[in-house]
Design a protein around this nucleic acid. Sequence first.
RNA 1: GCCGGAGUGGCGGAACUGGCAGACGCACAGGACUUAAAAUCCUGCGAUCCUAAUAGAUCGUAUCGGUUCGAUUCCGAUCUUCGGCACCA
Length: 804
Amino acid sequence: MSVYTFKKIEEKWQEIWEQNDTFKAHDFSCKPKFYGLVEFPYPSGVGLHVGHVRAYTSLEVISRKRRLEGYNVLFPMGWDAFGLPTENYAIQTGKHPRAVTDENIKVFTNQLKEIGYSFDWDRTVDTTDPNYYRWTQWIFLKLFEKGLAFKDKTYVNFCNECKVVLANEESQDGICDRCGSEVVQMEKDVWFLKIRNYADKLLEGIDTVNFLPRIKLEQENWIGRSYGAHVDFTIEDSCEKLSVFTTRPDTLFGVTFMVIAPEHPLIESMMSRITNLEEIKNYQEQAKKKTEFERVQLAKDKTGVQIKGIEVVNPLNNQKVSLWIADYVMMGYGTGAIMAVPGHDTRDWEFAKKFDLPIVEVIQGGNVQEEAYTDIENGILVNSGLLDGLNVSDAKDNIMNYIEEQKIGMRTTNYKMKDWAFNRQRYWGEPIPVVHCEKCGIVGVNEDELPIKLPVVENYKPTDNGESPLASIDEWVNTTCPTCGGPAKRETDTMPQWAGSSWYFLRYTDPHNMNSFASEEHLKYWMQVDWYNGGMEHVTRHLIYSRFWHRFLYDLGVVHVKEPYAKRTAQGLILGPDGEKMSKSRGNVINPRDIIKEYGADTLRTYIMFIGDYEKPATWSDNGVKGCKRFLDRVWKLQDMVTEGQEYSKDNEVLIHKTIKKVHEDYEVLKFNTAIAAMMTMLNEFNSKGNINKAEFKTFILLLNPIAPHMTEELWTIMGFEGMLNENSWPVYEEAKTIESVIEMAVQINGKVRSKITIPIDCSQEEANKIAMSDPNIISHIDGKTIVKEIYVPGKIYNIVVKR
RNA sequence: GCCGGAGUGGCGGAACUGGCAGACGCACAGGACUUAAAAUCCUGCGAUCCUAAUAGAUCGUAUCGGUUCGAUUCCGAUCUUCGGCACCA
C-alpha cells in the first residue's frame, strides 16, 4: 500500500505541467475556445490569501473541465500592480516601487504555482510594465480625442492621509475607502472621464449578458436612471431662468417654494438683488465646511435660508413662490435646484414644516398636513387646473406634452452615476499623456511618443497640497507642445488604480503585441470573455469602468463585441475561524501556504470548494480542512481495492451515471460543495460494497481531477491508464442509466408517512396499492375509516386520504 | 428610509418542478485496533413520549395565518439578520 505523499506528488506534477506546456492557450486553434477570467490580484506585500484561492479555484475547476471536454482554454493571470500600498511601503523602506512590485509579483507567482493552478503563464500581464501602460495611455488619448476626458475645477474628495483625490465611490460615507480616515472637500482642477455619456449603453448592455441578478441590479441602481422633465421657472423681474429637474411634473401645481443647492451659480449672478446676502454667505460657508458625512449622514434635520429679494414664478399658474438655499439639495444631481412640492415629497414636507411654508394638496388620497402623500398609483389630481381628475401617470404624460408645447421645459433623463474622477496625485501610476501649452491649451501627446514613462527618481513622496510629486521634477515636466512646438508642461497627475484593470482582459489575448493593444485577429478569436468571476465589491467600480472602456473601444471600432463579459459570477467572502472578517489586527488570518504545507494543495482546493455555498460568506474551519484531507486519503486508498474491468459493473452502474450527472451539472453552476458531497457519497458506496473496478475508478478520478488535479494525475499513472489524465476526456453519462429500476416509495395516510414500500420504478397504482395494503402499519391507520382519495405520483409518492 | 438576499440539528450546509426534511462534512458519544495515545476502521447522533428491545406516536425548516391530499418550497402579515444605495428631486 503506497502512502499519499502529497508534497512529492504536487511538486512532480507541477513540474510536468510546466515542462509540457499543458495549459497553454493556443491562438486560432480550431477547437472551440473558452475564455475564463478571474480578477487579477493586486500584488501586495502580504501575499496571497484564502479569498484569492476561493475566487480563482472556481474557474480553475471550470477551465480544467473544459479542457477535458475538448476546448481550447484561455485561463490567464496577471498583476494589477500600480497603487498606493506599494508606494507607501516603498517610501517607508526606501526601496523603489518598481523593485517592491517585482518582488511581490515573484511571491504571488510562486504561491499561485504551488496551488497548481492551470494558468497560461506565458500570457501574464503587468499593468506597471511600460509595454502595457503604453496602451492604457493610448486608450486615454482616444478618450481625450473624443472629448470623453476633460479637466474641470470642482470640489473633490481629498484624503489627507493618502494625499489623493478620491472618486465618489472611493469615499462613501465621507471616509476614505483605502485608509479609513476622513475625507475633506477641496477645490481642484481634476480629470474626469465622461462615463455618464455611456450610462444608457451600460444599462442596455447589461440585458444582453448573463450576470447574476444581484450584480445586474446593483449596477442598475448605481447608474440610477430616472425619467422626468426639466422645467424652467422664471425669476421675477429678470430674464434669468431657474431650471429644475423633476420626476414628478404632475405635481407642478403643488409647488410652494423653490430650493437651490448652496453652490448654485444663481447666488453669484443675482447677488446684487439679494437683500440678506450676508446670511446666505454664512450658510454657504457652513455647508462647505461640512464633510460629506455630516451633510448626508448626520444632518437629516433640514437646514436652510430664504434668499430674500428674489421670487420665482411658476410657469404654469404664474404664482410667485419664495426661493431658498438648503444643503439637502445637491449641486451634483440634476440642475442643483428643485421645485419643492411639500404635499407630495417627504423631504420638501419636512422643510416646509420646519420653516412654516405652505403645503398644497394636488393629489388626493392622503392628509398632506400630517405627512407627504407620495403614492403614485391611486392618487387623482386636484387643484391642478388642466390636470384635475387625472391619475398620476396620465397627468405626467399630459403635463409633459404641455410644457414641451409651451416651451417651458422638456422631457429629460437623469442619472445618479457621476462622471469618473480619473486622477491620482501620486507617483506610482500611469502618467496622463497630455501636455499643457500656453498657446494651445491641453494637448494630447503624439501616439508615437508613448509610453510616457515614469521618470526614475529618488523622491516620490506625496505633497500636502494635492500636487503630484512629478510636478517638482523639472526635467520631466518641461517639454514641447506637439502641436505648435513651443514650450509646454507635462500633466503631472497620474491615473487611478482602476485604469490598468479596465482593459487587461483584452491584452491577455495578445500580450506581447508591440504594435497595438491586441491584434484584431486575436481579439476576434478570443473575445468575449466567456466567464468572469470576481468579488461583489467590484460590481460598481471595476466592472462598470471596464464595461465603459470596452464599449468605448467598440464605438471606436477596435473591438468587435459590445460587452466584454458574457457571464459574471461572484464568490462569497471567507471569514476567519471566529466568524469575523479576516484581518491582521484580529489575528484570524489563514495563510494558504500553511495549509499547503500541512495538508497539501489538493486538500486546500478541496476544502475551499467544499466550505459552503460558493456565493455566500463562509467561516473557516480547521476541522473542515481535516475532513477534506481524510476524504483525499480515502480516495488514495481506493487504489488498493481496484479490480480489473473495462466497463462499469452492473452493481455500480446507476451510482456512477448518477454521480457523473450530478458533478457535471453542479460544477457548471458553482455548486462545488454538493459536487464534492456526491463524490464522497460515491466513495462511501464503493467502500461499503467493497468493490470498484478500473473503469469505475477511472471515471471517479476524472470527476475529481478539476478539484484535486495532482493526486488524480498520480493515481492515473499508478493505475497504468493510458497517457496522462489531462490528455483524456470528461466522462459522459446516459440519462436512462441515472435512474434506479427499483425504488423505495413513501406511503402516506393523510399526508403523513406511515410506511415505505419497495417497488419497481414503473409500478402501477394497482400494484402499489396491493403492496401497501398488506403493510400492517398502513392497515392499522386505515382500519375503521373510509378511503376518500388516493394520490399516486409514479416514482415519487403514494398518498391515501381517509375519513372516519 | 428605499432596493435586494437569507433565516433549516451542537456547527457548515443539503433537498428536483409542491412529494420520505436534515444528503455530505464537522463536532460529539460508544466500540475495535494499540501497553497507551494519535491515526485508522465500525456504530450511533433533531426534540419529546412510549417500549425490556423491536416497532411505534407527537412535535419540528424564524413567528403567525392561508392555499393544498401533501408546504423548507406557493401566498399574506410580522420579526431577525446580511448586502447594496441613500436628502438623487
